[in-house]
Design a protein around this nucleic acid. Structure first.
Lengths: 210, 210
DNA sequence: GTCTATAGAAGGATAGAC
DNA sequence: GTCTATCCTTCTATAGAC
């Protein structure tokens, strides 16, 4: 495979990524991708055979990017508070650069449950929970953080980071109408979200016990 | 228009709602809708003329349902704490019955910004903010809740309620693998979310100041 | 109002020349 | 490896009988 082939193949892949992110699998057209790459439809099939295969490869790449961002948090040797700060800062910064990923991934995983199962095969879910409990036994005790509440907390954290991007069209439009700037709102959210969650956890008296 | 026509027309509308919720505008097929309604394609066009028009009507109905749920909170004469509790209970209960609405709406609003603008024309966004400030001046002061932080708080509340449903495929699969039950998780979230937010707000010392 | 049949357009995929 | 031309299927939409 020559250097030039490689360039064409990559150019197609990037164009496909762009179009799929914008329109989704069902809305995307091979013609759109070809136009975006400045070539013709036949070449798409020459390199990737079918639309399904092309989409799969784009999706795997994107989903990998997204979920890899979650894992390292568990390996850092930080206090729980700092882990929370670290996560929001890193994750929101990543999403600032890739704002269309959340909605795209949620969509396609929803439409294709088999894909979801395949994705989870490689992720040792249970370990994440246990790692957290192993690394912060005293903090978890002090915060009255029972095993039952860990999913609630983790999904809350994910929500606060991901949702503003998944709902960007809605939130952005409302902000604009109310005189706020979406980008500034996102920038501020890196700190706000972390301190909000920490404040909630540090208030064990008022903390939900379920 | 006879009673029977009305029934057919409604049957089509319900079938269209079902199929569009499942597949989205691009993925839905007129044939699917006809099959679901137990009639043939021609009848769809007889009643609704085009797929676009049918989709628009379904979307307006669904978006109305979704956003109407947000408004009444601002009219209740409750303490701020109880308003938060009221919102989560009502809204999550609503989403339990309509779990596919969030992702559907986020998607189609994202693909069609004009729709978003039209939707906001009818909603006095700024009023919501000001209502909140008018109704709870002392609580807002006590919580150190500046004007800049209101969007952060409101999107946080929305996130915590809506995101678990938008990300149901992901969260549900992870829960299952970790031995948790998604439905129970949602049921518990009604209280958890409210108390979590209240705990964060009641901890002004640790509260984000931006 | 509801059906069958089909027109007409669009999209994915391939053949074959260069 | 890249292009043009084209096949074939799928889908929206309409015509016309009942």
């Amino acid at each position: 495979m020559t250097e030039h082939d490689k360039l064409t193949e990559e150019k197609i892949f990037e164009s496909a990524t762009e179009v799929f992110l914008d329109k989704g699998m069902d809305g995307a057209r091979m013609q759109d991708i070809a136009n975006h790459a400045g070539i013709n439809k036949a070449l798409l099939h020459y390199y990737y055979r079918t639309k399904d295969r092309l989409f799969d490869m784009v999706f795997e790449k994107i989903a990998g990017l997204m979920f890899k961002k979650f894992a390292p948090v568990f390996d850092e040797t930080l206090t729980l508070d700092d882990k929370i700060r670290f996560f929001f800062r890193e994750h929101i910064t990543f999403l600032q650069k890739n704002p269309r990923l959340p909605l795209f991934i949620l969509n396609e995983l929803n439409r294709n449950p088999a894909r979801m199962r395949r994705l989870l095969e490689n992720i040792p879910v249970k370990t994440l929970w246990e790692k957290l409990e192993d690394q912060h036994p005293e903090e978890i005790k002090a915060m009255n953080l029972t095993r039952e509440k860990i999913p609630q907390l983790m999904t809350t954290i994910a929500s606060m980071s991901v949702f503003p991007f998944a709902a960007r069209s809605v939130i952005g439009a409302i902000m604009e109408k109310a005189g706020y700037d979406f980008d500034r709102y996102i920038e501020e959210r890196k700190d706000y979200a972390a301190e909000f969650v920490i404040a909630a956890l540090k208030n064990p008296k008022d903390n939900p016990t379920i």
